[in-house]
Amino acid sequence: MNAKGSIAIAITLVALIAAPLLYTAAGNGLFTKPPAPQLAKAVNATECVEPAGWMRANHMNLLTHQRDLIVREGERGRKYRIEGCATCHTKRAEFCDRCHSYAGAKPECFDCHYLP
């Protein structure tokens, strides 16, 4: 068999294998960007403890850093206690959880810390 023939066969094979995969992927909406999560509005305030954009990007570092200071150093009364988020973000399921599942993040904090 000449080179041309084998290339044609290869292309046909790839197309045959890929077609059903692409078909289901499109059906599952993999080529469209999923809609941004609808986050519940914060109550009692118009501003977050830090600017919202910064919080979006950095709240995980903030919370873990403060966690060590509070637990290990006993420096309580800090501004960003995890339970403190609940004073304004009153619905965890429609705020924290919704964004976390969108982003594929799985913080285990809420196994132990109560956020309504």
């Binding site: 339970e83 285990e108 196994d111 132990c112 810390h113 109560y114």
Partner: peptide, 15 residues
Amino acid sequence: KETTEWTNKDVPKRA
């Protein structure tokens, strides 16, 4: 076994 009851919501429970 984790408890599912919160007697004091200000204090974390244990996983």
